[in-house]
């Protein structure tokens, strides 16, 4: 597999705007790291991803009862908002 790193696509997916110099440096770093981890992608295993438990102790999920608890007040919820109005968080338009 090629280590050609499409930095523009990846930074878009990750929602991080990058400067040109940053792009070059990061592409270079990431290519080095990817080359190192390449050893893994060449391995073959007799199991599939769906068989792997995500919990390292291979624990199963315990569900929680449907009982309401109060946590944050309205004021606490908005206390860190960069901008808010009429009890809502305000952001620049999300529809272009």
């Amino acid at each position: 597999m090629s280590n050609q790193f499409d930095i523009d696509n990846v930074s878009k997916l990750a929602s991080i705007e990058l400067e040109e110099t940053e792009k070059n440096k990061l592409s270079q770093d990431l290519s080095i790291i990817l080359e190192h981890v390449q050893a893994i992608s060449n391995l073959e295993f007799d199991i599939s991803v769906d068989e792997v438990f995500i919990h390292p102790l291979e624990k199963q999920l315990n569900l929680q009862e449907d009982v309401v608890e109060e946590f944050l007040t309205h004021e606490e919820a908005l206390s860190n908002a960069p901008e808010s109005k009429d009890g809502k968080f305000i952001v620049p338009p999300s529809m272009e």
Binding site: D86, G87, K88, F89, I90, V91, P92, P93, S94, M95
Partner: peptide, 8 residues
Amino acid sequence: ATSTALDF
């Protein structure tokens, strides 16, 4: 739209 208001 000039801004978007969010209710969670």
